[in-house]
């Protein structure tokens, strides 16, 4: 890259017009790319955050509702019939999967009770894993942006400072008026990186804790339900 071009691209930026747009516009294209990328990351982070918040709230409410129905004394067959019609999530899915396995074992041409207990537990484990996977989806994006965002921003800053130093060398003028705009626009990249990374890290920690909590709740329900089914199996025999 020609130093004269750098000088021309940086020098017109005087300290008088340091608006956000001019900061972006006078930056080197690599810095621009970094800035745009980080902005997109920030948008993505907030989209995931909104999505996850809604999802976790909905899941928690569904769990509360299901637990209420489950412990209300309603017969399990009835509950199964009402739930199996529509696709369900989390605790409902767990219950439906276990019940389906139960029914299949008893309503088939030959009853296979021998390994029923083990089968039901396996089915519930798989369902829990699937549910957790659903809750955890895209959380890795938050983690990645949270950890890599500052570095990407720093890269833009370093690049911007490099070009501004090139412009200093080209103009043979070290006055602050020449140096400052380049450094300001370079630091802008780091600022955007931090703007993207800080919410990402915070949301990641929050959602990771939430996933943990819900997974434990599912495990607890699975243990409880498998105990109930185990007693039923023993009674039937």
């Amino acid at each position: 890259m020609n130093p004269a071009d750098v000088a021309q691209s940086v020098l017109p930026l005087t300290s008088s017009d340091l608006s956000l747009f001019t900061l972006f516009w006078h930056a080197h294209w690599i810095v621009k790319l970094v800035m745009i990328g980080l902005l997109v990351c920030s948008v993505w982070v907030w989209a995931i955050a909104i999505d996850k918040t809604v999802l976790f709230n909905r899941t928690r409410r569904a769990m509360d509702r299901f637990e209420q129905a489950f412990w209300s004394g309603q017969s399990l067959d009835e509950l199964y019939r009402s739930l199996s019609a529509k696709p369900s999530h989390s605790m409902e899915a767990l219950f439906v999967a276990a019940m389906r396995e139960w029914k299949r074992s008893f309503e088939g041409p030959q009853r296979s009770i021998a390994g029923l207990q083990m089968r039901i537990e396996k089915v519930m484990q798989v369902t829990i894993a699937r549910e957790i996977e659903r809750l955890e989806r895209r959380l890795l994006v938050l983690a990645t942006i949270g950890s890599a965002g500052p570095f990407v921003g720093l890269f833009g800053t370093v690049w911007g400072i490099m070009t501004s130093f090139q412009s200093i060398a080209a103009s043979k003028n070290t006055s602050l008026a020449v140096v400052a705009p380049g450094i300001a626009e370079a630091l802008f990249a780091t600022a955007i990186g931090l703007v993207a990374a800080i919410p990402a890290t915070i949301f990641y920690n929050k959602f990771a804790g939430e996933v943990n909590k819900q997974a434990q709740r599912l495990e607890g329900f699975a243990d409880e339900f498998s105990a109930i089914l185990s007693r039923q199996i023993d009674d039937r025999e």
Binding site: L20, V43, W44, A47, A49, D51, L55, A184
Partner: peptide, 27 residues
């Protein structure tokens, strides 16, 4: 889908913040 509305909300939020920043941020 749920994700689409979330990203639209996020985009709108960012646009608003950027617009505000462009208006107010002057050296």
């Amino acid at each position: 889908m749920q994700m689409r509305t979330a990203s639209m909300i996020s985009t709108g939020l960012h646009a608003a913040v950027l617009l505000f920043a462009v208006v107010t941020f002057t050296g």
